[in-house]
Design a protein around this nucleic acid. Sequence first.
RNA 1: GGACUCGUUGCAUAGCUUGGAUAGUGCGAACGCUUGCGGAGCGUUAGGUCGCCGGUUCGAAUCCGGUCGGGUCCGCCA
Length: 628
Amino acid sequence: MTFKSIIDEIENNLNKILDDLSISDVKFSVEPAKPGFGDVSSNVTFLLAKQLKKSPKEISEMLSEKYSQCISALVSKPESHPSGYLNFYADWPKLNQLILSESNLPEFGDVDIGKNSTIVVEHTSVNPNKALHIGHIRNIIIGDTVSRILQKANYKVNVLNYVDDSGLQVADIIVGFKHFGYEIEPPEGKKFDHYCGDDVYVKTTEKYEQDSSLEEIRKNVLKELEDGNSETAQFADKITRRVLSNQLETCWNLSVSYDCLNFESQIIRSGLWDGIFEKLKEMNLVEFENDGKNVGCWVIRGDGKEEDKVIVRSNGTATYIAKDIPYAAWKLGLLDDPFHYEKYEKEQPNSRVLWQTTLNDSAFVSQNFSGDKVITVIDSRQARLQKIITSLMGKFKSIPDAYVHLGYESVTLSSDTAKVLGIETDGKQAQMSGRKGLYVNADSVYDLLKEKTTEETKKRHPEMDDSEIEKISHAVSVATLRYEMIKQDLDKIIAFDLTKSLSLEGDTAPYIQYTHARASRILEKSGRDSSIDVDFSLLREQSEIDLVKTIGLFNLQVRDAANNLSPKVISRYCHDLAVAFNSFYEKSKVLDLGDERLENSRLCLVHSFKITIEKALNLLGITAPDKM
RNA sequence: GGACUCGUUGCAUAGCUUGGAUAGUGCGAACGCUUGCGGAGCGUUAGGUCGCCGGUUCGAAUCCGGUCGGGUCCGCCA
C-alpha cells in the first residue's frame, strides 16, 4: 500500500456519498494535489455543478461537510477550496508508516497491468555493417527501458533484436572487401565495426558516386548474397557476425541485453514468406494488378488517399516491407516456428541467456519468443510502413492493439557538432548519415564521458584506487548517456551536441546519482542499520512529508509509464525524488541531533529514499554508486 | 500536392491522453549560502498574450476547425 491507499479511500467514500445522493455515473478524478493545495484533490465538484445547478464552491462545501461524517483511516480532514476544488489533507503519521514500511519490500512499485502475459519488445535492429551511432542508441535505450518498465508491470517480456544482415548495406562493405581491396583486419587499435562503418562503408559508397560503372559490381554481389551457399554469402556471414559481436559489446556496455537474435537472412530462407503470402491472398488482403502503373505486381491497397503499396514486384521478388510481414506475424506467434535455437557464443554481462535462431537441423532446442502483444521500436520515419503492418496484424489477431509501433523522432546533430565533423549547416541541425560518414559513434561519446567523469571522480577522491574510480565513472557515464536519450518525449527531436552532452549538472543522471550518494553517506556515517520500528509521527517537517509522499507515488508512476509506454515518466520521477531528497537534506539534519528517536525516524526515511531511487533508476538501466 | 509530426521565457523542456486552482523544470543571467550528514548541491530575483485566428464550454496550454512556421514520409530502394 502506498499513496494510492489514501486515493482509494477517498474515492470509495466519495462514491458512497454520491450513492446516498442518488447520483451515479460520474467519472471524477482523485489525484495527488498540486503543492499548496493539501495532499489529494478531486474535481468531482466541477462535474456535478450542472446536474445539481450549484456552483462548484457550494458543492465542495457540501461534500466536505458530508465527508467529515465518513469513516476515514488516512484522511485527517477534507477542505473546500474557494476555487471550488475539494481537497484533502492526509493523516501523515499513519501514511508515513504505511509508505515507509512498504518501501522496504522488494516488490515495492510493482503494478499488475500485464497479468503475467507475454509481450515482445523488438529494438536495436541495425544493419551489421557499421558501429552504432547515437541515433541507434536512442532506439536501444528506449527499447531497453520500456522492457524494464513492462517487466515491473508484470509482463513476461521477450526482447528481440532483428539483425538486418542482408541487402544493400551489407553488400556495400562486401564490395569494399572483395573488390576495392580493403584489408580484413582493421588498423591497430580500431574496433572492427568502426572500421567497417567509418572506412570501408563510407569510402566504398563514395566510389560509386565517382564512377557509376561500379554499380555493376554492387548488383552482382547483391545477387551472390541471395544464394546462402555461395562463397560470397558465407564470407558476408563471417563479416556481419563479427560486426554484430562488436555492436553487442556496445549495447552490453550500456547495460542493455536481449533474449533472442533474429536474422533477416534466415527469415528469408525459412519460407515464412510463402506461408504468409498464401494467407494474405486467401484473406484478400493483397491484390494482383492487371493494369495500371503497378501492372504485374501484388499490392496492398492504400488507405484513403494513400498510394497502393507494392509487396511483390512484377519479377516475383518480395519488397522490403514484405519481409517485415512474416516477421511481425512470427512475433505474434501466428505462424509455425521454422527455427531452431542455439545459445549465442558469448555470454551477456548480466548472465541473461541470449539465444539466436538457426536453420541448422543439428540444433534441436525449441524455444518460444512470441508474445500476446508485440512492441516494435522503430523511428517514426517508418511510420507509414509500420501502419500497414499494424493494420494487417489487426486482421490476423483478435486482441486489440496486439501489434504496436513505438515510434520516436530521430537524433540529429547540432550545427556546432556538425561543424566539428566538417559540415557547415548555416546554423541548422543536420540529419546523420551513415553513408556520408556524418554521425557520432556511441562508443566515442561513452569514451568522452568516461574521460571526463574519471577526472571528476579522481579530483573528489584522490584516495581511491583505479578500479573503484573506473567502476564509478562507468556507472556515471552510462547513466548520463541513457538519461539524455529518454528524458524528453519520444516525439521530440534530439539535436545532439557533443559539448552539451557532457554536462553533469542540473537535470542529468549524475545529479540523481549524487543525491543517492549523499543518502548512502548518511547511512554509512550513522553506524547503525536503519529500522522501520520507529516513531513515524516525528516526521512532520514539510520537506520530510514531501519526500515520503514522493516515495509513495512510485507505483502510480510505474503504472503511468507502462500504460503509455513512456520512459520519460520514470526519468521525471527519479528527478522529482532527487529534488525532494535534496530539499530534505538541506532543511533537516539527520545525524548528531542529540535525539536518538528523531535520528532513527529520519534514518528510516533516508533508507527508504535510497532503496526507492535504486529501484526507480534500475528501470532506467542506471545504477547509483554509494560514492562518486 | 497528400499524410504524419512539432511549435510553451534568450535556449532546451514538463504539463495536453482524462479541460478547472498559482503553467513546473533545467541551462544561461544577477545575487546569496560551506569551521555543519559530500557545493555534481541549496536558496532568492529577473524572464511566459502556451505560434496565430476562430469554435465548443460556466471555464481552454489542454478538445474541435482553420491558418502560419520548422521537421519527416509519400519507389517494382532498403
